[in-house]
Design a protein around this nucleic acid. Sequence first.
DNA 1: ATCATTGTTAACCATAGAGTTAACAATAAT
DNA 2: ATTATTGTTAACTCTATGGTTAACAATGAT
Lengths: 111, 111
Amino acid sequence: MVNNDIKQLDQIFSALSDATRREMLSRLAEREMPVWELAEPFNMSKPAITKHLKVLESAGLMKRSVQGRTHICRLTSSPLSEVADWLAFYEKFWSKKLDGLDEFLTSRKGE
Amino acid sequence: MVNNDIKQLDQIFSALSDATRREMLSRLAEREMPVWELAEPFNMSKPAITKHLKVLESAGLMKRSVQGRTHICRLTSSPLSEVADWLAFYEKFWSKKLDGLDEFLTSRKGE
DNA sequence: ATCATTGTTAACCATAGAGTTAACAATAAT
DNA sequence: ATTATTGTTAACTCTATGGTTAACAATGAT
């Protein structure tokens, strides 16, 4: 459903709009790790970490597997492909330094 | 400055996390247009539109040129290239359906 | 059995976000 | 000169977000 896609994009972009969460993804890109290890670089309380993880999880960017008392987190990158799809449409603009029709026309003045 | 880049990414992702703003960008990708025309599809008060435009503008995704009483909006897509750069790092993961090291190992079990 | 580790939940606070209405400013048209 | 159009600002509401501390649950180690 298209409407779901929109909501999903909302969630994904929103999840990515926080530097802490982006760094979490970056760490998980290297390897999976338990919450306590993932949290190490962040000067932040445990509940704050829990919240960030929930955001990533409900955006589909992370999954966890519970092993005893530790939760192993791993990157699930597939939602990023939707961002890439969205972005692909705009690539022609910046790659050609072309921002809207006016600049296109401007760039053709000398032809 | 790297710290500025982070803040800029925050702003860009945050600006993109709203469907209204994404649709605004989509409209501006076709051609530049005045605020009143850009606002047409949205069932929303004028001040709400103004706010969305400010968000896009301060994320660097839109610029305006004032012509009399109308403000002509145009897409400035260059910040999206930073999103693309950020995303490029993760492309290998989803393109190979590879989410973290464990799945990499799993995928090699049969070799 | 007790204690330490790992992590979540609940309750709270402060700030930001998305929307509203009412009022205004500037320009254009009559 | 008045009126209509285009858009912003101010002030307000409501909800979401990012953080905290305190308490708890579950597991593991001694």
